[in-house]
């Protein structure tokens, strides 16, 4: 599906540009995006190196295990395939916690590390059930305090910059619950199809 989307976005874009007279813009976009991708990777490298180092200390000091133990009953239900005391659980929880508080640049390194741990558990190049669930939670966003949005609202003179926090929390809860339900639905569909074989 990703292959299809990738090919479609680029080829539809190029063909459209041919009729629309925007080939110039497309050319510019291609080369400025190359720079942008390298810049994003570089700045990600910085946060990755820092946070993975710090989280390694947290892991060795037993903080991640503590965090995992605290939320175990709840998270075990969402990720039934992960063994009880696995470090993957600690990284998943740190990612979720960082996300909730709007610490996006701390959340990504922990999420990537969690994915590595999940890959160690599954040992295949196919997305495992836990990986799909973890991504579903992340893509639906867990933000409780949208710090960036509040900052923009303040900048443009809002009388109540934080008025959208309530609405954001409700919408986030709905979208995350929906993500989990949709994920379960696809999981059961997959297992049903396997049983039919």
């Amino acid at each position: 599906m990703v292959n299809l989307i990738w090919v479609l976005l680029a080829s539809v874009g190029i063909i459209f540009a041919a009729f629309n007279g925007t080939m110039e813009e497309v050319n510019q976009a291609i080369f400025s995006t190359l720079d942008e991708a390298v810049m994003i990777t570089l700045s990600l490298a910085g946060v990755l190196v820092f946070w993975l180092g710090l989280m390694k200390i947290a892991e060795e000091a037993g903080l991640l295990r503590g965090l995992a133990a605290l939320f175990r009953p709840f998270v075990q239900k969402i990720f039934p395939d992960i063994p009880k005391d696995d470090p993957a659980m600690g990284y998943i929880l740190s990612n979720m916690t960082a996300n909730m508080f709007g610490l996006g640049n701390a959340a990504t390194p922990m999420g990537l590390k969690a994915m590595k741990e999940l890959k160690r558990l599954s040992g295949s190049d196919k997305a495992s059930r836990s990986m799909i669930t973890f991504l579903a939670i992340n893509t639906s966003s867990l933000t409780l305090i949208p710090t960036t949005v509040i900052a923009i609202r303040m900048k443009y003179g809002s009388v109540a910059p934080t008025s959208i926090v309530g609405a954001t929390i409700i919408a986030t809860i709905i979208s995350t619950c929906a993500a989990l339900l949709i994920d379960r639905f696809f999981h059961y569909r997959r297992t049903r199809m396997l049983n039919h074989d």
Binding site: M115, K116, D125, I174, S175, A179, F186
Partner: peptide, 23 residues
């Protein structure tokens, strides 16, 4: 996330993610 750990077959991840976005 999938790129960082070299997952090639993404399963239902994209469908789940996009449907959740719609909701």
């Amino acid at each position: 996330y999938f790129g960082a750990v070299g997952i090639k077959r993404m399963g239902d991840a994209l469908k789940v993610g996009l449907l959740a976005d719609l909701v």
